[in-house]
Write a protein that binds this DNA or RNA. Structure first.
Lengths: 224, 224, 224, 224
DNA sequence: TATGAATGAGAATTCATTCAT
DNA sequence: GATGAATGAATTCTCATTCAT
């Protein structure tokens, strides 16, 4: 009673799904999430609006998958680098350098996926991604400490990893933002500066004497 | 038809304007930008919807000003710290510590202003703020280098400053996000970890040998 | 700070609200609930779609109010009759006769409000109305029994009241349905037949011998 | 291209058609008409959506047939009772009792078929059914009058029959509505109350004096 | 200036029906 | 006949902005 799905049908289905995701990606890459209403996505994908809902239960699911797809790849690449046999420093540098380079290649898309807020429901995916990336770096850190490559005094590698991700992202923002002027050379410089910053942060011994006092109450009291 | 503005009128105007900004702040602090439609802002400000447009040409202008107000204060506080007579390390630590502490006190509001996306038009203000904060840190860095407190090998202090801001924000994100449970102790710990991370990053001499090779072309070629 | 609402403004507001309700009534009366999407209601009311939502939090609320308005009036009229000083029989006949007459005057609208299903949320109002009408009749019944006008053997006046309402409604359906041919004379006859039916039902002494056996199991077993 | 229909094909067709109707019945029984979109019906019937349109020209036709099927059975059962050799009163009581009992057994389905509105096109079928049921009762009435079992003064047996159906349905509504709590005992009581009500209505001699005046013009004039 | 009702262009989602395979 | 993905019109609801009073 059921007919064999021809390869051609399979292909059409697959290509529709991907065209929809692709259209979403294109639009988000062009103008952020606000440029990607379902109707626009459908139009770009050369598909009827309803068709989108054949492949995704809701727009949020579509966006979540878009973000997840992009993020999985990025985290995957970082993980790949993290597992190479080289020194922890090399691997950390490599992971950050690759991540940053790719983000710059993707520009607006990366910016949207990394920085731009969406629906809270979808946002959770974004945060998970940041966390996943942090976890990859965390593992490199732990390994580096175990090998004696990085100093061990830190009590919270998780916090360090988050800071690394943040340094990397924010270091990029100026060059990812829609306003930034393109400029290959500046991009590469910026990437290397970021890598250097991160390595210093995990390699330093923190010997610098810092008065550990809290922020003055007066300053905290000022209204936010 | 024009008449002399009495002082009382002036006062009312000022107070209206401020009540509107205050209402916006309150609502954003409660539930992010999506909880702050113009009608709601007007209601909370005990003002008619149309009145909002007497004081602000558009909602975007209102939000931009809200963000600017908050940010000015934060940047101002950081600047104040930057100008104290202490060591560069102390000042850097102080600025970061204060910024982070205040962000945690403000939680939802800080999260919205720092992380939550809005209209692209408004977003520019957010970036400016991040940039301004970076500039304050940049000055501390430059001063620290001049004094010989920080190593000088860096060629791009601007990038470092951005990374500092990023490390700080991202280090906080987990604790700023609407989902996070409050927890005083953890907050303080996290803040100190962030401070330490930042100081290492600017104090380290970057002696760690890192193979400076680029990301492999294969990895860059993978679609974003 | 607040301006006095002019009478004219009041009038406009009131008239808008009523025009919206009126438009809904008109459309429902013309083709049932399915002919009354919000856009159509707004158009007929010479109002923008959004305006509808100024007056009603949702379409369901609007419909519920429409039904409630109509029903309140009907129940009110029946109640008025129920409270007159006449005999219970007269009052019962009067209430039923009036209700039936008015339903026939309203035809399609009455049909929709009484018979046509809508959203479950709205439907509850319809059932309440039927119940309210039944309660009015119930009181007349109770009074009639107390006065010795109706025989007392009934143990469930509530059920009787429901049956009265049902007899009345169903007796009318043929003449209310969109397909029915108009015909003043037939209408009046039908109404009197219904009144007579109802009076017999509450006046009869039920002396007729009826074998009280249940439906045969075989018949109950047949699939519905 | 046309080929002889094998018996097996016939069987499959029959079973498809019936499975579709069965699926519709199941879904309507579960959640009313709104729970029965074509896709869902097809899924439950283990058939492709398009297949539904092989057997039914439109969804309305499908629903109409569903209602017709159910109703035919009910009317058939009532007719069977009507033709037994017993007294008219017994037969009337039997028919009503059986109809009510079965409706209560079917609950949600009965409620949907009897009370829930659908498309006007489909609604006509519902009315036909009510009419058919009325006709069966009408015949019992006529026979009862002919036999002298029921008083003869009525001039419109058709109206009486409609009232009987109405009394029966409305008497049940409270117990058929999706909100009602099941309760075997109450169900049986209610059924007997309905039977008694109906018998009184057709057996009474209508001797009760009722002022036969019309509804007052004032009351009729109030807007519906 | 202040008011706040009115506007109307979208936004997400549903679903009966069609048609290439 | 059977399949089920594709269609796209229709529906409800939101909200920044305007403007008569």
């Amino acid at each position: 009673m059921s007919y064999r799905r021809t390869e051609r049908t399979e292909a059409r289905l697959a290509s529709n799904r991907e065209r929809i995701l692709g259209a979403a990606r294109t639009l988000v890459a062009k103008g952020g999430f606000s440029e990607a209403p379902v109707v626009a996505i459908a139009t770009v994908a050369r598909v009827a609006t309803g068709t989108v809902y054949t492949y995704f239960p809701s727009k949020n699911h579509l966006l979540a998958e878009l973000i997840r797809t992009i993020c999985d790849r990025e985290v995957g690449i970082a993980a790949q680098i993290a597992e190479s046999g080289r020194s922890a420093g090399d691997r950390l540098a490599g992971a950050i350098r690759t991540f940053a380079s790719r983000a710059i290649l993707g520009r607006r898309l990366a910016y949207a996926v990394i920085v731009e807020p969406v629906d809270p429901e979808v946002d959770r995916v974004r945060l998970q991604y940041r966390r996943a990336l942090a976890r990859v770096l965390e593992n490199i850190l732990l390994d580096g400490i175990a090998r004696g490559e990085f100093p061990r005094q830190r009590h919270d590698v998780e916090a360090d990893a988050a800071c690394l991700v943040g340094a990397c992202l924010e270091g990029l923002v100026a060059r990812l933002s829609p306003d930034a002027f393109p400029g290959e050379a500046k991009d590469q410089d910026r990437i290397e500066m970021i890598v250097a910053f991160c390595l210093r942060a995990v390699s330093g011994d923190g010997a610098t004497a810092v008065t550990p006092e809290r922020a003055t109450p007066a300053m905290l009291r000022q209204r936010l």
